[in-house]
């Protein structure tokens, strides 16, 4: 954790935005390691795939479209900012004095609904991974809402910069364009990525369908699946990658994933249960839960993968 703090300070001081973005990737990776130490394997999985992968690529894309140096400003207002930050920090530290110490099993957070999830989910849902049970079944409403947020964000990106005729004058210094020549001629990169991409896609499918039993699930699988395509587009050619998975297809999947999730909920309504109550989907409540979680996670995976792919291509397409 000290390491993370050091990286944070470095990010605050550095002017070169390229280095800042690289450090952010490193920061995320450190956070992922920390999550593993703190027993949150599912979270670590997501952080490693998202923070060190997708968000770094997106930031680099933005830098290539804008500029990679931060201008040095006069330090007039930043003294007051520092004072404000320190004061807020002190107040927060004062607030932590009442917090239960680290790892305390008697802390209030462990005595509300968490014991119920840990004890009952084995019988009610029958899946070993409690995180998946809570995510897709007990708190299915939350997850549905979050899928809608991702869906909305992807639509927002498509609306804001998805239409090339909008801007007056486009920058031609797109990251992918810059790297094209050296990347295309680099045999190691080409062969290595060709070997890796099928494995990445296969691994994504494994994470998707095995998320009920081990760490994994729709969110992680969607991000990993998308990163396979993004790797292809980075090393080979945006247009080739785009013909392989055209814009219409990703938009279709984007909508289909959300509809699948909502559809499973509505199907529960028609079969006499509550919205997002999977127990009525099959004769046996436990297998109904299994079916529901599987379908819902598939919907999540589709939407996340489609959202990430279309966001990436929207950024990458700015060069044309």
């Amino acid at each position: 954790m000290g390491f993370m703090a050091v990286i944070g300070f470095a990010v605050a001081r550095l002017r070169n935005l390229f280095a800042v973005v690289m450090l952010t990737g490193l920061f995320s990776l450190t956070a992922a390691v920390l999550y593993v130490i703190l027993d949150a394997v599912d979270v670590a999985f997501t952080e490693a795939a998202v923070g060190a992968g997708i968000s770094t690529v997106l930031m680099l894309g933005t830098l290539a479209l804008t500029s990679s140096e931060e201008r040095v400003e006069k330090s007039g207002g930043s003294k007051w900012a520092l004072v404000l930050v320190v004061v807020t920090g002190c107040v927060l530290v004062y607030g932590t004095l009442d917090m239960p110490p680290f790892g305390d099993p008697t802390a209030a957070i462990h005595h509300h609904v968490a014991p119920y999830y840990l004890e009952k989910s084995g019988q009610e849902i029958g899946l070993p991974n409690v995180v998946t049970s809570v995510l897709a079944s007990y708190r299915g409403y939350d997850t549905l809402g979050e899928v809608f947020v991702i869906f909305t964000a992807a639509i927002g990106v498509l609306l804001i910069i998805g239409r090339p005729q909008f801007g007056r004058r486009r920058s031609h210094r797109m990251l992918v364009g810059e790297l094209h020549e050296s990347m295309r001629t680099n045999v190691i990169l080409r062969v290595g990525s060709k070997l890796l991409i099928p494995v990445i896609l296969l691994f994504a499918l494994y994470v998707q369908w095995h998320g009920d039993f081990g760490p994994g699930g729709g969110f992680q699988a969607g991000v990993i699946f998308a990163s396979g395509f993004i790797l292809y587009a980075l090393i080979f050619d945006i247009d080739t990658a785009r013909t392989m998975i055209p814009a219409r297809t990703t938009r279709l999947f984007l909508v289909f994933g959300v509809l699948l999730y909502t559809g499973v909920g509505v199907a529960g309504l028609f079969l006499g249960g509550n919205f997002l109550d999977y127990s009525v989907l099959a004769a046996n409540p436990v297998s109904g839960q299994h079916l529901g979680i599987l379908l819902v996670e598939f919907g999540v995976g589709l939407t996340v993968a489609a959202a990430m792919i279309s966001i990436f291509f929207t950024f990458a397409h700015q060069e044309h």
Binding site: A40, G51, V131, V157, F219
Partner: peptide, 28 residues
């Protein structure tokens, strides 16, 4: 360990990258 915060943060990370992408799009 308590699974509930894990669930909340797991989804928050993916939502976070989606909103970051939206912010970056505005920057562009």
């Amino acid at each position: 360990s308590n699974p509930l915060p894990h669930v909340l943060i797991l989804t928050a990370i993916v939502v976070g990258v989606a909103t970051t992408a939206l912010g970056l799009a505005l920057v562009v």
